[in-house]
Design a protein around this nucleic acid. Structure first.
Length: 510
RNA sequence: GGGUCGUUAGCUCAGUCGGUAGAGCAGCGGACUUUUAAUCCGUAGGUCGCAGGUUCGAUUCCUGCACGACCCA
């Protein structure tokens, strides 16, 4: 912790929201300390709740007598989720990561019965040792012969039935959200399995995972505003990466033919249900492949991941059935615009005046700067993108808005590029990489001009990247996939915050 | 950046046409030897987001601010 850190302020060290409930629990903790039983770490469990529930799920076979005849001593540990005392007996459901099992305390079997019940609260972490039985109502239970409070919870849990519904508190105190809502834990398990499966999928196809810098002297690889930080020893500003693209392609120059990186990118932009300032992206590059190959790869990967993780290619997202089974639709950007806007003649789309007149006649606000490519893209994003529900590859984006993509051989004003949309959201972006250093230098100069003219998202000229291309980047196809959005899709969530453990929020006021 | 809505007990929520507030759960005390949101009796718990204004009096009305949600840019 650095001296200049804000936590040096004694005010910020004071605990939040002390109240009589906390005081009550602190007093119990004090009693535990006097007994020499506070925060032990020598309890070792030999069973987990969910495994016991599975093992003895058959109630006919495993009735109370059969369970007791086992004479099996189990040691389980976890959080107490309720407390039902009935005088000489008490029931304490205990939850660990695998599930729940009920602790059955009996005054005649559990030493220190009275005092333990006084000391233990809902929310405490306990270790219990005992034998298995089934209660009259059929609940698999541990008859507790020894109970130890491993951690005294000083704060009460939210309402046992209604849980935690304050969305702000759920994001700020995700740990509480996770304790109270098992289904939230499931979302993040799915996310973990998705990323792991994606790595396996790519590894199996000969891709290797690499790690490139997160701090860039020159921000590049995407159209976005970067975060700026400072390196004291070097005395320079650095930019948190907005994309790993330019480093990954340098590695393809160096001879790695199939590489990928799954990690965080940072963009200094607004927060919304689909944007977080830090987010996770897969980027991959395959030498001697083009955007058609990459589209096929993207489609196969998403389809097969759904099959593996969800057991189906028929998903539901926000109530809409999304079918990953059939071949994804492929359509050129300009065709799509012409189809949705019949009054716009197909052969006049590359005309700024036509686009502007049409937009203002229809109340569509377009940016003041930019050529036909930028205007057309804006028109698409505003009027068509939200309607692309089934998986759709939109292809051949204007070169003007694709400064790192290879120009199409028949039509130099567009690029061999695609974006994949599902349920109105951009999921992936890929293209044949621009490997002509002179063309790339020209595009960088155009970007630098746009930047000078006030476009904060335009890319700066990266001379070393041009130098790398001058040694020869193989013909290459590349891909970026938004992991957060893909998780939203697989987990059927509407907000990116629901797939981020700690979404960006303004700091809590003290 | 703009609009709408929200912020009341630890949690989930009522409520006050302006007279400083209630419930359920959680808590505390008691009863209870098979509960499943246990039940029953009793009890305690609040800077009504923050700051101003209007008013004899503001949690309530007005303004500003903070944080959040949704929509728009």
């Amino acid at each position: 912790m650095s001296e200049s850190s804000k936590t040096a302020d004694p005010q910020s060290l004071s605990p939040r929201e002390e109240n009589f409930l906390v005081a009550e629990r602190r007093a119990k903790l004090a009693r535990l300390r006097r007994r020499g039983e506070a925060f032990p770490n020598d309890f070792r469990r030999n069973a987990r709740a969910g495994e016991l529930q599975n093992q003895y799920a058959d109630r006919e076979r495993w009735d109370g007598a059969a369970l007791e005849a086992l004479h099996r001593k189990v040691r389980v540990a976890g959080r107490i989720r309720a407390k039902r005392t009935m005088g000489r007996v008490a029931f304490l459901p205990l939850e660990d990561e695998s599930g729940r099992i009920q602790l059955f305390l009996r005054a005649d079997r559990t030493p220190d019965y009275e005092e333990l019940l006084e000391l233990v609260d809902v929310g405490d972490l306990v270790g219990a040792e005992g034998s298995l039985t089934r209660t009259r109502s059929g609940e698999l239970s541990v008859v507790v012969e020894r109970l130890r409070i491993l951690v005294k919870a000083l704060r009460p849990l939210p309402d046992k039935w209604l849980g935690l519904s304050d969305i702000e508190q759920r994001y700020r105190q995700r740990y509480l959200d996770l304790i109270v809502h098992p289904e939230v834990r499931e979302v993040f398990r799915l996310r973990s399995r998705l990323v792991a499966a994606m790595r396996r999928w790519l590894d199996a196809r000969g891709f290797i995972e690499v790690e490139t810098p997160m701090m860039h002297p020159i921000p590049g690889g995407a159209a976005a505003r970067p975060f700026i930080t400072h390196h004291n020893a070097l005395g320079i500003d650095l930019y948190l990466r907005i994309a790993p693209e330019l480093y990954l392609k340098r590695l393809v120059v160096g001879g790695f033919e199939r590489i990928y990186e799954i990690n965080r990118c940072f963009r200094n932009e607004g927060v919304s249900t689909r944007h977080n300032p830090e987010f996770t992206m897969l980027e991959l590059y395959e030498a001697y492949a083009d955007f058609e190959d990459i589209m096929a790869l993207t489609e196969a990967m998403i389809r097969e991941l759904a099959e593996e993780l969800l057991g189906t290619t028929s998903l539901v997202w926000e109530g809409k059935k999304i079918d990953l089974g059939p071949e994804f639709r492929r359509v050129r950007l300009e065709e799509l615009v012409a189809k949705h806007h019949p009054e716009l003649p197909r052969n006049r789309l590359r005309d700024e005046e036509t686009l502007r007149r049409y937009a203002s006649a229809h109340g569509i606000v377009l940016p003041e700067q930019g050529g036909w490519g930028k205007l057309l893209l804006e028109l698409f994003e505003k009027t068509i993108e939200p309607a692309l529900i089934q998986p759709t590859f939109v292809t051949h984006y204007p070169a003007e808005v694709s400064p790192l993509a290879r120009a199409n051989d028949e039509d130099r004003e567009v690029t061999d590029r695609f974006e994949l949309f599902i349920n109105g959201r951009e999921i992936a972006n890929g293209f044949s990489e621009l490997n002509d250093p002179e063309d790339q230098a020209e595009r960088f100069r155009a970007q630098a001009q746009a930047k000078a003219a006030g476009d904060a998202e335009a890319m700066p000229y990266d001379a070393d990247y041009i130098r790398a291309l001058e040694y020869g980047l193989p013909p290459t196809g590349g891909l970026g996939v938004g992991i957060d959005r893909l998780t939203m899709f697989f987990a059927d969530r509407s907000s990116i915050r629901d797939v981020l453990l700690f979404p960006a929020l303004r700091p809590e006021a003290d």
